[in-house]
Simulated scan of single mutants.
Amino acid sequence: DSPRYAAVAPWTHDADGVSTWEPPVSWRPLPRRDDTTRDDYDVIAAVNRHTVMPWGWTHEQDNSKLVVEEDGAVHELVREIGVNTYRNTDLSNDRAAHDYWAATQDYWAMVRGYFDNLETGTQGFHIEDDAEGTLLYGPVLEAGQRVLFGIATAEEAYAEAETLLNSQITVVE
């Protein structure tokens, strides 16, 4: 999805090869599916924990749908807790994934570099996005596709993506 669900936290690593990423509780906008169909809550207070283990990884969610009253009072409408488990597999037909990465890795390195610069060179940043989540991530992915199909170089595609990123990201001074 787009960075509307982004969070920042360090990874922790233990001696058994288990690494966990758990950001603090953060308020997030409604999921697209709810933003267009519901009006009974205003924001989600969310924690998403990712734990990588030798056999795969887990994604745990602990989310509260919150109602924010006009006087600023906040109350929980419902709490959702979920666990997704992913196991490493040996894919026999993973050539397309390897081909994609080989063709686009330089482009994605530039995109990651853009966000690395934001994270280390600013007090913070805010990303504007619409409820459909397509104004930012869709065109950035499409630029990567042009690299894959040889329509653009990584540098040309990144110049496009950078223009879009700059138009939707506000740096906090």
Rank of each mutant, 00 (worst) to 15 (best):
Q105Y: 02
H98K: 14
N84P: 01
K65H: 05
E80Y: 09
W108H: 00
S64Y: 02
R79F: 03
S92Y: 02
T89L: 14
D106V: 08
A103D: 05
W101M: 09
V68D: 11
H75I: 03
T85W: 06
A103Q: 09
L66H: 02
V78R: 15
L91M: 11
A96N: 03
R79H: 15
V68I: 10
L66W: 01
E69D: 12
V67T: 08
D106W: 02
N93I: 05
N84Q: 12
D94M: 03
E70N: 11
D99M: 00
V74E: 13
E80W: 08
L91D: 08
L66P: 00
H98F: 09
E70K: 11
S64M: 06
V68H: 06
Q105L: 02
N88T: 12
D71C: 08
R79C: 03
E70A: 15
N84F: 13
N93G: 06
L77G: 06
G72R: 09
V78F: 10
E69W: 14
Y100K: 06
D99W: 01
H98T: 10
K65R: 11
A102Y: 06
D94W: 05
T104P: 00
N93Y: 08
Y86V: 08
E69R: 12
V74Q: 05
K65P: 00
E80V: 11
V67C: 14
D94P: 01
D94Y: 02
A73L: 15
Q105H: 09
D106E: 14
R79M: 06
L91Q: 07
N93M: 07
T89H: 10
T85F: 06
S64C: 02
G82F: 00
A96T: 01
T85P: 01
N93Q: 06
E69A: 13
I81F: 10
G82D: 06
R95M: 03
Y107K: 01
E70I: 12
W108V: 00
A102E: 15
V67A: 15
R95W: 03
D90V: 12
L77R: 15
R87T: 08
G72T: 11
E69C: 14
E80P: 00
S92Q: 02
N88Q: 13
E70V: 09
K65L: 08
H75Q: 12
V74S: 07
E69L: 14
D106T: 10
D71Q: 08
G72K: 08
Y107H: 05
R87V: 05
A103Y: 04
A103F: 05
N84W: 04
T104M: 01
T104A: 00
S64V: 05
Y107D: 02
E69I: 08
D90Y: 07
Y107S: 01
D90F: 08
G82K: 02
N93T: 07
V74W: 04
V78H: 11
R87H: 08
V78M: 14
Y86W: 12
Y107R: 02
V78Y: 06
V68Y: 13
E80L: 14
